Computed example of a mutant assay.
Amino acid sequence: MTNSVRVGVIGLGAIGLNLLRAFAANAEVQVTAVCDVDAALVETTARPFAASAWTDHRRMLDEVDLDLVYVAVPPRHHHAIALDVIAAGRHILCEKPLALTLSEAQDMQRAAQEMGVVHALNLPLHGDSGIETFHRLVQNGGLGALRRAELNLVFPQWPRGWQQNPWIGGREQGGPIREVGPHLLHVILSTLGPVARVWAHTEYPANDPDACEMAALGTLELANGLLVVVSCLTNVPRPEQVSLTVYGSTGTAGLVNWATPVAALGQAPLESVPVERAQEAAGTRLVRALVERVRGTASESDLVDFTMGVRIQAVLEAWEGSSFAGTWVDVVQA
């Protein structure tokens, strides 16, 4: 098959525009249509690609021949727009988190499976060579019996400087746990196993009922009994930190700066671990996998599908439920 994969993009915020460029850089992709509620932005964005410009995604789906649609709108719009995309029989890539609620995420998963379309979630750490190295360090038994894991999220500013928009700092859709959490939850679920229950405490600004969390502390209890302690802190005079550490009886492995693997045996200091293959830009890797899946030439493992999206959403919902109730909350298993 030599025809280009025709792609439509719905949502032209910072993340949507970034991945749009990755689509455009792939010689086997044609950016065919773009859609956003901002008419001027749509026109400006569409012009270099000779793409059609739309402010109504339903009209775009009705009037443009597309193979794949990327949904990059804020989370509370994922459910309705994704169901429209799936009902139109288009393959779909969706931003994370998959939806605003677990029930919405389950709807999207069920619809995509019933329609038989390719369904994927944009989690750039998937397939990263540093993450793969970390996974092997944990899984090969060299750490001994696993004792504990720690996830630390520190942000000197939230929202981050490049991420200023009306919703990312809001309690309904935004916040670091919902925005950054899915990336690391995917690593935890894929490397350490399913989460059985959650305990969480969340701190919100006292003078703004609509603002997202400024701090959070909690524990994920995995189905195998391992505990993952989660600490999140924003707006402190420290550099950004996104790290995951797994402690074993004979060694330790971790990720620093999101995806750099480190390890140590015994009481030795943690040191960087060489990755086994060259790093590749996440967008490039994702777009290639999408093209191959749409054409039926790649395995399902090359993408994060909506099933993992539902599993992540179940943990997020349990976290929010525990924060409200002040008790352990069981995670619904997908």
Rank of each mutant, 00 (worst) to 15 (best):
N3G: 11
S4W: 08
R6H: 09
V7G: 00
V9S: 01
V9P: 00
L12F: 06
L12A: 05
A14S: 15
G16Q: 08
T32Y: 08
T32F: 12
A33S: 04
C35F: 05
V42R: 03
T45M: 06
A46E: 02
A46S: 02
P48I: 10
P48E: 13
F49P: 00
A50P: 00
A50K: 14
A51I: 08
A53D: 00
A53G: 14
W54S: 01
T55I: 07
D56E: 11
H57T: 04
R58H: 12
R59E: 13
L61I: 08
D62G: 12
D62F: 11
D65T: 12
V69H: 04
Y70P: 00
V71M: 09
V73R: 01
V73T: 14
V73H: 00
A80L: 13
I81T: 08
A82P: 00
L83Q: 14
I86V: 15
A88H: 09
G89P: 02
G89Q: 09
I92N: 07
K96R: 11
P97E: 07
L100H: 12
L102E: 06
E104M: 07
E104W: 06
A105D: 01
Q106K: 15
M108F: 11
A112S: 15
G116N: 15
A120R: 01
A120Y: 02
P124V: 05
L125C: 11
H126S: 11
S129I: 10
G130H: 03
I131G: 00
V138E: 03
Q139W: 09
G141H: 10
G142Q: 02
R148A: 09
A149R: 02
L153Y: 10
Q157V: 11
P159H: 14
W162L: 14
N165P: 02
N165Q: 09
I168F: 05
G169E: 08
R171G: 05
E172L: 13
G174I: 04
G174N: 03
G175H: 07
G175V: 06
P176K: 01
I177M: 12
R178S: 07
R178F: 11
H186G: 11
L189Y: 07
S190K: 10
T191D: 15
P194T: 10
A196C: 08
A196Y: 06
R197I: 04
A200H: 09
A200G: 00
H201P: 00
A206P: 01
D210N: 10
A211P: 08
L217S: 07
L220S: 02
A223Y: 09
G225K: 13
V229M: 03
V230D: 01
V230P: 00
S231D: 05
S231M: 12
C232H: 06
L233W: 03
T234N: 03
P237N: 07
V246A: 05
V246F: 09
S249N: 10
G254V: 05
W258P: 00
A264S: 08
A264Q: 02
G266P: 01
A268H: 02
P269Y: 03
E276F: 03
Q279M: 14
A281T: 10
G283F: 04
T284P: 05
T284C: 09
R285F: 04
L286M: 13
V287N: 05
L290Y: 07
V291P: 03
R293K: 15
G296M: 12
E300T: 12
D302K: 14
L303G: 06
R311G: 06
R311Q: 13
A314N: 04
V315S: 01
A318V: 05
S323N: 08
T327I: 00
W328F: 08
A334C: 13
